[in-house]
Simulated scan of single mutants.
Amino acid sequence: MSVTAAFATDITGAGATFPYPIYSKWAEAYKAKTGIGLNYQSIGSGGGIKQINAKTVDFGASDMPLTSDELNKDGLMQFPAVMGGEVLAVNLPGIKKGEIRLNGKIIADIYLGKITKWNDQAIRAVNKGVNLPDMKISVVHRSDGSGTTFIFTNYLSKVSGDWKSKIGMGTAVKWPVGVGGKGNEGVASYVQRIKGSIGYVEYAYALQNNMIYTQLQSHDGTFLMPSSETFQAAAAGADWAHAPGFYEILTNEEGKSSWPITGATFILMHTSQEKPANAKEVLKFYSWAYDNGAKMAEELVYVPMPKSVVDLIRSSWKEKIKDTSGKSVWN
Rank of each mutant, 00 (worst) to 15 (best):
S2P: 00
T9C: 03
D10W: 10
D10Y: 11
T17V: 01
F18M: 12
I22A: 04
I22G: 11
Y23F: 14
K33C: 02
L38W: 03
I43S: 11
G44M: 05
S45M: 11
I49K: 09
K50S: 13
N53M: 01
D58K: 14
D63F: 11
M64I: 10
T67V: 07
L76V: 04
Q78A: 02
M83N: 03
G85C: 05
V87F: 12
V87L: 08
G94V: 04
K97R: 14
L102D: 10
I107H: 02
A108Y: 09
L112V: 04
K114G: 03
T116S: 11
Q121L: 01
R124H: 08
R124V: 14
V130F: 08
M135N: 05
V140L: 00
H141P: 03
H141G: 01
G145E: 10
T149M: 13
F150G: 00
N154T: 15
N154A: 04
K164R: 12
K166E: 13
G168D: 07
G168H: 06
M169E: 15
A172K: 14
K174I: 07
K174W: 02
V177S: 01
G178Y: 05
G180E: 00
G183W: 00
E185C: 00
V187N: 09
V187P: 09
Q192T: 06
Q192G: 15
I194S: 01
K195N: 13
G199N: 08
Y200Q: 10
A204I: 03
A204M: 06
N210P: 08
L216E: 13
L216A: 12
M225I: 05
A235N: 00
W240G: 06
G245M: 03
F246Q: 07
E248C: 12
T251L: 01
T251P: 06
S257F: 12
I261C: 07
T262Y: 03
G263V: 11
T271L: 01
Q273S: 13
E274W: 09
A277D: 15
K280E: 14
K280M: 13
E281S: 02
D291G: 15
A294P: 02
E298I: 14
V301S: 02
Y302I: 04
K307R: 15
S308T: 10
I313S: 05
I313K: 07
R314E: 15
S315M: 06
S315Y: 09
S315W: 02
E319N: 09
D323G: 05
G326S: 04
G326M: 03
K327T: 15
K327E: 10
W330E: 07
